[in-house]
Amino acid sequence: MDYRQLGATGTRVSELCFGTWRFGRRTGGVLETDETAAHELLDAFAAGGGTFIDTANIYGEPNGTSEEYIGDWLETRERDRYVLASKVYFEFDEANPNGSGLSRTHIRDQIEGTLDRLGTDYLDLYYVHRWDEHTPIEETLSALDGLVEDGRVNYLGASTMAAWQLTKALWTSDVNDYARFDVTQPLFHAGYYEDVEPYLDVAADQDLAVCPYSPLAGGFLTGKYTRADPEDPKSVRAPDGSRGSFDERFERFYLSERGWKVLETVREVADELDATPAQVALRWLMDQEAFTCVPIVGARTVNQLEENLGATAVSMSEAQHDRITDARYREDGRRWGH
């Protein structure tokens, strides 16, 4: 696996980031990834050259379980070989009126818990998980700047906010001489690109790294789904147990005429390259030219993870990359609808 600069920072990371939102998560009362399976996945990621690991304080049940799994795994490893990212914003303690958001109080409280669970005295990257409408951005950025100043955090990131919010935060950091966001984490994949174009324009202009979550559209771009009705893009045949068979968000977030057109082209390119659709969809992201793009993969099994890691060995031509990009548009230049 190759390594690349994380935006304008001096830190290099693996071409793919491993997302751990399934660690300790329960769906319908069933534990998705227990600690043994989590460590097997982390072992496979590290064996493939992976160094960049993403989590959040609210991943797992109870909150913090994912961070604890990672911390236990790191006990027998060299901490400085890995780039750890976590997040803050969502409610961690429902009994605490200050147990959520981006206030100075919540940020300072949560960074201590995150570091303790991870078993480390610093975090490489700390994201704000969402924008907080109830806390002045100056307070949030001042608190985050303090974490950078005292060495508990190396870099700051922004996940899932509007382009104007990201721009406002960067401007506020600049005029107050606060540490600024160096990394962004939007929902971004080949079939969804246009919806976040203004956000990506800010990232490109400001030399921010982009670490997309759900880069395979919840599994849609792996090619395991088939269209059930040519007149209805929401009509899909989903394998039993797959996300599309039980997740109501799947239809709303990932099924569209645009998505099916892109998937068709992804499949064609995959056949040409003797690769899988998942590998091609990830490579399309990794080959973005306007900004450093490091997709976050969240495999359920070691086999799935190893397939995803295979994207690092795929070589796609510029023409093939453009075909996937162009599949989002009709012949008249209009974008296919969602």
Rank of each mutant, 00 (worst) to 15 (best):
14 S>P: 05
15 E>F: 06
16 L>W: 05
18 F>H: 10
23 F>V: 10
26 R>C: 08
27 T>H: 08
30 V>K: 13
31 L>Y: 03
32 E>D: 09
41 L>Q: 04
44 A>S: 09
46 A>V: 15
48 G>C: 08
50 G>S: 03
51 T>M: 02
51 T>Y: 03
52 F>V: 07
52 F>C: 00
53 I>M: 04
55 T>R: 08
62 P>Q: 07
63 N>E: 11
65 T>M: 00
67 E>P: 00
68 E>Y: 13
69 Y>H: 13
70 I>F: 02
74 L>T: 01
80 D>A: 05
80 D>I: 00
80 D>S: 10
81 R>W: 10
84 L>D: 02
88 V>E: 00
88 V>K: 02
90 F>L: 10
92 F>P: 03
98 N>H: 15
100 S>M: 15
105 T>M: 11
113 G>N: 11
114 T>M: 12
115 L>H: 06
115 L>W: 09
118 L>E: 01
124 D>T: 08
124 D>A: 04
125 L>S: 06
126 Y>E: 05
128 V>L: 11
130 R>P: 01
132 D>M: 03
134 H>L: 10
142 S>Y: 09
144 L>S: 01
145 D>K: 12
148 V>N: 01
148 V>Q: 03
148 V>M: 04
149 E>A: 14
150 D>A: 04
153 V>N: 01
156 L>K: 06
159 S>Y: 14
160 T>I: 13
163 A>Q: 12
164 W>F: 06
164 W>N: 10
165 Q>M: 07
180 R>K: 07
182 D>M: 15
182 D>L: 08
186 P>E: 05
187 L>Q: 09
187 L>A: 14
188 F>K: 02
188 F>I: 03
194 E>P: 11
195 D>I: 09
201 D>K: 11
205 D>V: 14
210 V>R: 09
213 Y>C: 02
214 S>H: 04
217 A>E: 00
217 A>Q: 00
217 A>C: 00
218 G>Q: 01
224 K>T: 07
226 T>G: 04
232 D>R: 06
240 D>G: 12
242 S>V: 08
242 S>K: 05
244 G>D: 00
244 G>T: 03
247 D>I: 06
247 D>M: 10
251 E>M: 15
251 E>I: 11
252 R>T: 13
261 K>G: 06
264 E>F: 02
265 T>E: 10
267 R>G: 07
271 D>G: 11
274 D>I: 03
275 A>N: 14
277 P>R: 13
282 L>G: 03
283 R>S: 10
283 R>P: 05
286 M>R: 07
286 M>Q: 08
289 E>Q: 15
290 A>M: 14
296 I>A: 05
297 V>T: 02
299 A>M: 12
302 V>M: 08
305 L>M: 05
315 S>H: 12
326 D>F: 05
331 E>W: 00
331 E>R: 04
338 H>M: 13
